[in-house]
Amino acid sequence: MDVSILRQGDYLIASIRSDLTDSEARALRAQLADLVGRTRARGLIVDVAALDVIDSYLARVLRSIALTARLRGAATVIVGIRPEVAIAMVHFRLNLEPLVTVLDLDEAVTLLDTSVREGALDGG
């Protein structure tokens, strides 16, 4: 599984670098759920900038990761969907609702800072 997980203050940053198989996705979800609790992270940033395709399967995986993380106390933000990926997703009527997507890490941190303080981030 080609995923790096870094810690930055109160937040965890998970960068997915290649497509995930079914079992890898479950393993990633378990690992993140564990880490969120253990590091007492308030936010989880999932970086998908390296991916050429986001299909319905990966969208479901991301959603389930976010829901799990929220139950463990962290809000999730998706980062780095590229233009051609976004066009393809819209074309196939895929969206990541209710997940929040932002452009880059700066944005993600800003958003998390705000929402963690206010205690409100939809669906995260």
Binding site: R82, P83, A86, M89, V90, T101, V102, L103, E107
Partner: peptide, 12 residues
């Protein structure tokens, strides 16, 4: 509509 949606996916 799709353009708006794609922009949203990118965080805008």
């Amino acid at each position: 509509v799709q353009t708006v949606e794609a922009a949203r996916l990118m965080g805008a």
